[in-house]
Nucleic acid binder design. Structure first.
Lengths: 241, 241
DNA sequence: TGTGCCCACATGGTATGCCATCAGAGAGGA
DNA sequence: TCCTCTCTGATGGCATACCATGTGGGCACA
């Protein structure tokens, strides 16, 4: 049976990890758009591409499935999870619940090191906006929201969030166009509230910021997606009353 | 999750995925307490126990790691994730953000089928409470909260929730003692608000219900956990148990 | 007797190969 | 002409085998 051995030496900072690399590379390809929605992910092709065997590829796909980046159909394999309007709606519903909470707790628990990170990220976003560097601005933005989770002193958020953060990056990749300025200024105000240790204000500002982002994202999304905001496949459970 | 049925042959539910079974069995063992916190999960032992090879076991462990049930340390293997006081605190913070939101949307989007399920679950919880069946009550309770997520019309929640639901089941396993009656009555009130289509009331009742559960859980948890509710790190590393 | 090095074993990580199943093409019949 | 049935190539799922690394114990030396 399973060995009753108590936790061995807590320190184990040694060995590398192989499938992690595959996870990162596939995830990047999905976020960057190199792999399109619904595309089939052939295990043998991927193992050839990355120079590893199929086993780490399979394990990487399972991890990504847990993050919602890919969709695994039994006996059919893995596919890039489609980024539908419905997914975007659901994403903002979840973020709308979690991020104000994260901001609330960040205002109460953020360490000095976190505050330094916050300041640096606002600065990065500001520079990116001033130099009109879309790519940099995109990273600074999503990094900001990730930091919000980390600074909240809730590791469960950090563990659950890869799913949310990953989809957020994909959505942001689509939605960012020219309004980055607005973004960094709102980020700055949120950081100020956190620095003041004002949880209510931090949460309120974050909620407002998310609402702005949500509206903007749907404008862009609807403009590039030719099919109109569908009823059936978007609303899922249609309003029954 | 699987909300659509591709145009496959009619009677085509033929895919009996095998690692899923291993996931369920290990998860159950953890939730039921057969596997204790921090215990090492030897891959060969598990594969012998379940009569499969190491591959599906490894894949199952990866899935469970994504849910936060087990913790994988590089080159050291998988361990049952310890259920510390800190984890419980984080769990209720996340649930406190997500479940009122889920109740809100359930009130607006629940299908008639969902309403039937809600009614049946309240009845199950009531019967379990009247007959003092702890085990049944535990299942009915966590099933209720899972249904809340499903009925909210947000599949992202359903995908992210295995982590939350799994930990909830473990915590509930510890916390349930004799107050199940309170539970099913509060559930009943939430369901009534959902049936009326009153999102604000449903959210408020859910928030109150969670707060009651949170307080009760910490009472129990602190009484069985010998170490006092520590101040700074709240849970941190508590290898000795 | 105490300490430190070294080797063998246990175990996680990866590779390879087999098998069951699914999808698409083609043939045959209505 | 169209439908259906079957056969087959492609592919995911799993088992087995091998490799690399970390661990613990024993032996030699001071």
């Amino acid at each position: 049976m399973t060995s009753q051995t108590p936790p061995l030496k807590a320190s184990a900072p040694k060995a590398p990890a192989r499938r992690i690399d595959v996870v990162d590379r596939i995830r990047r390809q999905i976020v960057e758009g190199d792999l399109i929605d619904g595309q089939r992910l052939n295990e043998r092709d991927l193992s050839l591409q990355f120079g590893v065997s199929r086993v780490p590829v399979r394990e990487a796909l399972l991890v990504l499935a847990g993050e919602g980046m890919v969709e695994m159909r039994p006996r059919q394999g893995a596919f890039v999870a489609p980024l539908t309007r419905r997914v975007v709606r659901e994403l903002f519903e979840v973020r709308g619940a979690l991020e104000p909470m994260a901001a609330h707790w960040s205002a109460l628990r953020a360490t000095p090191a976190h505050l330094v990170e916050f300041g640096a990220l606002v600065e990065r976003a500001r520079n990116a906006a001033l130099s009109h560097d879309i790519d940099k601005g995109s990273h600074a933005n999503t990094d900001f929201h990730e930091l919000l989770f980390r600074a909240s002193g809730n590791d469960l958020l950090g563990g659950v969030m890869p799913a949310v953060i990953g989809i957020t990056r994909r959505v942001f990749r689509l939605s960012i166009v020219d309004h980055e300025t607005m973004m960094w200024e709102e980020h700055r105000d949120i950081v100020r509230a956190i620095e003041r240790g004002d949880p209510d204000e931090a949460a309120a500002l974050t909620a407002a910021h998310l609402e702005h982002t949500r509206r903007h994202t749907f404008e862009i999304f609807d403009s590039i997606d030719d099919e109109p905001p569908r009823q059936g496949s978007d609303g899922g459970a249609a309003p029954t009353r």
